[in-house]
């Protein structure tokens, strides 16, 4: 028995060491110079009018990747929703309400967090920021509101919330297909309103990403209720 256990540990260890050796050799063999596509990316970003290279890559050059990643995020939310057995479990747990410290803190923090989320979206085109960062802050604000009892956790099963979760993806697809009407390709924003379209997509994505994060939190929290260790 113990010998068997010994052997079952040895195999993964050997495999992991072997893998480490192979990857180590590949990394050591890397050339010390080489920028990949960084130089043409930077030149392209300046020409396209989006000075922040990261945003230019995410929403312009490789906007298709981002479109599918947004789909991944919504899919993950749907996946977790499909696994959840008892949508009302968390609301019962939180029904007791929050203590005075959390309540006061949430009242003070929530408006600021909303402001920060909006700011992150707006500055996304020129500096660090954008829908993912804004969505993360928005999601955190939502979770605080849930925990302190200001928002009702049962919301995730409502029809309207499904719209909030999906609106980012739906509008993104719509904006992606819009150029086809005027002879462009998928995601080829027309130059005259490219900035507005990108901002519109980013704003609604922020909303959906925030809602997704809150839903993921609620769903995962309800599944641990059975443990009873609080």
């Amino acid at each position: 028995m113990s010998e068997h256990r010994h052997r079952t540990r040895l195999l993964p260890l050997t495999a992991a060491m072997l893998m480490l050796g192979v990857i180590g050799r590949a990394i050591l063999a890397l050339p010390t110079t080489g920028d990949g596509l960084a130089v043409p990316m930077r030149a392209g970003a300046e020409a396209s009018g989006i000075p922040n290279v990261i945003t230019a890559v995410l929403l312009d050059f490789r906007g298709y990747d981002t479109l599918l990643e947004i789909a991944v995020l919504m899919l993950a939310t749907v996946a977790v929703l499909s696994l959840r057995e008892d949508p009302a479990a968390l609301s019962r747990r939180i029904a007791g309400g929050a203590g005075p410290v959390l309540g006061t803190l949430t009242r003070a923090l929530a408006p600021i967090m909303l402001l920060v989320a909006g700011h992150l979206v707006l500055v996304g085109s020129s500096g660090p920021g954008g829908a993912f960062q804004g969505g993360a802050v928005l999601g955190a604000a939502g979770i605080l509101l849930m925990l302190s009892g200001y928002a009702r956790p049962a919301w995730a099963s409502r029809r309207a919330v499904r719209w909030v979760l999906a609106v980012g993806l739906i509008v993104f697809i719509g904006v992606a297909l819009y150029p086809l009407l005027s002879g462009g390709t998928l995601l080829q924003y027309p130059p005259e309103n490219r900035k507005d379209l990108i901002l519109l997509v980013e704003a609604l994505l922020t909303l959906s990403i925030g809602a997704s994060l809150v839903s993921l939190f609620l769903a995962s929290a309800s599944s641990t209720e059975g443990g009873g260790r609080r």
Binding site: L67, A71, M74, L75, V78, R159, R162, W163, L165, A166, L169, I170, I173, A176, L177, L180, G183, T185, L186
Partner: peptide, 26 residues
């Protein structure tokens, strides 16, 4: 003209369907 966009549509159409089926209700 639409035929040029077939690769894009073959991804965009089912993706739209996925998002809409979510809000359409069971």
């Amino acid at each position: 003209m639409l035929l040029d966009h077939l690769p894009a549509l073959l991804v965009a159409v089912p993706l739209t369907g996925a998002a809409l089926s979510f809000v359409a209700g069971h």
